[in-house]
Design a protein around this nucleic acid. Structure first.
Length: 272
DNA sequence: CGGACGGCCTGGGAGC
DNA sequence: TGCTCCCAGGCCGTCC
């Protein structure tokens, strides 16, 4: 599941496309495009890529005359850089022919991913409601405390909600809770100042570690060159229910929080 | 307003 | 071996 580190890794790999033109776009899954594939194709072909950036779990391509292409990978989407249009994987849905001979392929097993075209001087609805970027300098502990103090509910639900802090999904949420030694179902209101400091520190730490490891590969995520990430090799909690805690040896348990499978250590993460 | 839940999808694994 | 069923999950829309 591409979360902040996986999207960030892809964005960094795709920088070689900046300055190049999108010549053609083809698809066998037109449903993925907004507003429609026909309009998307008509407006995007011939435009130059001026910048590729990440905002939350979105990739934002800035094109000629400030047109934008906003991509969300959802569960299984990812880009692949290729030399020609021979599919590098089974589930290639879209092809972008780029000037200079590169083909940008888009793979997406479950067809949940979306590619949205945004006209100049138009706001993208999807980017409007997003919360703060956890790796920005302006995301300080004071800022974090200000955000979380306004909220009620379970810690994991807070971490997953993109209106609070962006970029955290099921994998990193479990890792952040574990590394903070806080139960994922702990009520936010019951967290102490020390707890908040730990959560704040681990949000930054776990996401940075994910980026350093070029992402977490569970199932299908790969970088733009088709290589797996390495972060799955050092996970402490995510999907480890039934296995021993690597700190205390207790068997990790699982539960559902906001419909998400959640793994945690009942001894290290004492419920508050 | 907010929490719960269904829908979107497909491949892989479990169970029979 | 082969069939069916269930599950994974980000995000949105709907309902209570």
């Amino acid at each position: 599941m591409p979360e902040l580190p996986e999207v960030e890794t892809q964005v960094r790999d795709l920088q070689i496309l900046v300055g190049h033109k999108i010549l053609t776009v083809t698809t066998d899954t037109p449903k993925a495009f907004r507003p429609t594939f026909t309009i998307f194709q008509k407006c995007i072909e011939g435009k130059k890529i001026l910048a590729i950036e990440r905002r939350a779990k979105f990739l934002v391509f800035t094109l000629t005359k400030n047109w934008k292409m906003i991509v969300h990978f959802r569960m299984t989407g990812h880009f692949l850089l290729a030399k020609n249009s021979a599919p590098l994987e089974k589930c290639i849905r879209h092809f972008f022919q780029i000037s200079g001979g590169t083909v940008l392929q888009f793979s997406d097993i479950r067809k949940f991913a979306t590619l949205e075209l945004v006209a100049p001087n138009t706001k993208s609805v999807s980017l409007e409601k997003l919360g703060v970027e956890p790796l920005d300098r302006e995301f300080t502990f004071l800022k974090f405390r200000e955000i979380i103090k306004k909220k009620k509910g379970k810690l994991k639900a807070f971490l997953l909600d993109q209106k609070n802090v962006v970029g955290i999904g099921n994998i990193y949420a479990d890792e952040i809770c574990f590394a903070s030694s806080i139960h994922p179902a702990a009520e936010i209101q019951n967290l102490s100042e020390v707890d908040l400091k730990n959560v704040f520190r681990e949000i930054k730490k776990q996401l940075k570690k994910g980026i350093r490891n070029r992402g977490t590969t569970i199932g299908e995520y790969v970088d733009a060159c088709g290589q797996s990430g390495r972060n799955q090799l050092s996970l402490m909690a995510y999907k480890r229910h039934g296995q021993e805690c690597q700190v205390c040896g207790t068997l990790l348990q699982k539960m559902k929080i906001v419909q998400r499978t959640t793994s945690f250590c009942p001894r290290c993460q004492i419920k508050i």
